[in-house]
């Protein structure tokens, strides 16, 4: 398996504060690779380093066989980018945005115009071909930005928080689109802080916190290797007392946060039974997911 992106010991500081602090990971051609992390973990800076938009203080990046940032311009011919904040050209219509973008890749006007219908269909914007950008909804803009990133038929697509700020319907539409691209064989590199997004889309992912990669693997591997398979969330009046007296002896790993006790275990039955003399408590039992891994590794504190 060849690496389409490999990042080695990346370090980048702003004003003496390290934002990326020794990140190492690699993504294989054809896979969807996620960089998962809380706000301020260094995801966007890592992506900017990968694209050669900023030079790292230390470490190296290789993208599509090109050394970055030295050969970043050449590499960008093989890459599409969907930034976190829409920067569609507001002076142009939907179609004009696509055609002009192709021109930046030295694609002729004729060829660019010929690919517009297919891109509009991909973005589900066939009936908006001549719409102004400010007349599009957030979801439409994001889909157009994704379509725009495909004008050069890239091998790799970089997506920085592709569904942040979208409503659930729009998110599902974007996910479907991304899955289709992955099926076509494009490599996807995406950052996100949505666990469900990472779990749904990514073949493999790394978890980033405070500029460091703290775990890497497939969603299933990460869950299996870091978390007990079952989680019981117990909440209600007296949960602290219950947790201290009952749960602490039964549960493999117990975490009390606010008014909820998170019980990580292999079997929920004993825990549910131990609630019988606490009728005011309620419980929710579920399988462990990526969010549990994430919270275990990065803690419950608010980041900003």
């Amino acid at each position: 398996m060849t690496a389409i992106l490999s990042v080695q010991g990346l370090v980048k500081s702003y004003d003496g504060r390290p934002v990326v602090n020794g990140a190492t990971f690699s993504a294989t051609a054809g896979e969807c690779f996620g960089i998962l992390g809380p706000n301020g973990a260094g995801k966007t800076t890592t992506m900017r380093c990968c694209l050669g938009l900023t030079a790292p203080d230390e470490g190296g990046v290789e993208l599509c066989g090109y050394s970055i940032p030295a050969m970043a311009r050449e590499a960008r011919y093989r890459v599409g980018v969907v930034p976190q904040f829409d920067n569609l050209d507001p002076d142009f219509t939907v179609t004009e945005n696509l055609v002009m973008w192709a021109r930046y890749y030295e694609i002729s006007k004729r060829d660019a115009r010929a690919m517009v219908p297919r891109l509009l269909e991909l973005a589900g914007l066939e009936d908006r071909a001549d719409a102004r950008i400010d007349a599009l909804s957030g979801g439409m803009k994001r889909r157009l930005t994704i379509a725009r990133a495909l004008v050069n038929d890239p091998d790799v697509l970089f997506l920085d928080e592709p569904t942040t700020g979208l409503d659930p319907q729009a998110r599902h539409l974007v996910w479907d689109g991304l899955r289709r691209l992955a099926k076509e064989g494009k490599s996807l590199i995406l950052t996100t802080h949505f666990m469900d997004e990472a779990e749904r889309l990514c073949d493999r992912l790394c978890i980033m916190d405070a500029g460091k990669i703290i775990a890497e693997g497939s969603p299933r591997q990460l869950i299996e290797s870091h978390i007990e398979p079952v989680v019981v969330e117990v909440f209600g009046e007296g949960v602290h007392e219950w947790a201290e007296k009952e749960a602490s002896v039964l549960v493999e790993r117990l975490e009390v946060s606010g008014e909820t006790a998170f019980c990580y275990t292999h079997s929920a039955d004993a825990i549910l039974a131990a609630m019988s003399s606490y009728p005011q408590l309620r419980a929710m039992r579920r399988v462990a997911n990526l969010e549990d891994v994430f919270i275990k590794l990065t803690g419950r504190d608010i980041r900003d």
Partner: peptide
């Protein structure tokens, strides 16, 4: 305001 330059830098333009 429009971040047009920033966007264009994602292409091979410098």
């Amino acid at each position: 305001m429009q971040r047009t330059w920033e966007g264009i830098l994602h292409t091979p333009m410098t």
